[in-house]
Nucleic acid binder design. Structure first.
Lengths: 118, 118
DNA sequence: CTCATTTCTTACTATTTTGTTAGTATCTAA
DNA sequence: TTAGATACTAACAAAATAGTAAGAAATGAG
């Protein structure tokens, strides 16, 4: 939980109020969010599919990051009343508006990695 | 200092090895980096100018973030042998290759802020 | 009734990031 | 000689993020 009155939190708020980049970083920052967004970009996936496809992620972190993305309106959680339960995750319309940004980041990152290898 | 063998560090490394977005986030993530990059995008600035123009930043954080950007090759530190000292910071050529990405982030973030206001 | 499956929770610990405070070095001008 | 300007550094504390381990609910199959 964040402590609303810490200098840290206040500084973050101030930056987010004045800088679009910081807003974007706030939404997609977090250890596993890039991985999740990559997976979901190709279409809907179940919770267990995500877990299996993201090597090393714990259930706690997967849920936490999905919840944050959901709160931000980037991802939609769809529950099917079945047993055993089935929950699917998909990118929302707002989420899709991130595509140019995500592509730009992905391109730059890959290019940089290539350079770093040489 | 990072502990190279923590699960945390290993997970991050794995993600960075496989995901361009994560690479980009690693480079521009950090509380004050967006603010610094915005300022320097308009041209060279002295250390003290940066400090004054970024409300709330401490000297420790400003130096730390500048050092990281320098290490990543995004920013160049230029020292003039004067008294009192003069140190200027500027975006490198590699740094400029981030422009499309930074613009995409900035655009998306601003648009989102506008939507959030309404 | 017991087990298996899926999708999570909860409580706790470890790690990392950020912030605070008090310095340091150098030379110049008063 | 003393203060002032600039660009830092170091030691420590607080806050935030990430990881670990165990368990919970729901229900159909056997």
């Amino acid at each position: 939980m964040r402590k609303q009155t810490s200098t840290n939190a206040l500084n973050e708020k101030r930056i987010i109020d004045t800088c679009g980049m910081a807003v974007a970083l706030r939404v997609i920052g977090g250890r596993w969010k890039p991985a999740i967004l990559c997976r979901l970009a190709n279409g809907t996936m179940r919770y267990s599919e995500l877990r299996k496809s993201i090597e090393g992620i714990s259930e706690r972190m997967l849920v936490a990051q999905l919840r944050e993305l959901e709160q931000e309106g980037i991802v939609r959680r769809v529950v099917y009343a079945e047993v055993p339960p089935r929950v699917e995750y998909e990118i929302t319309e707002l989420g899709h508006t991130m595509t140019p940004m995500l592509n730009a980041m992905s391109d730059w990152g890959r290019q940089r990695s290539r350079l770093a290898q040489q």
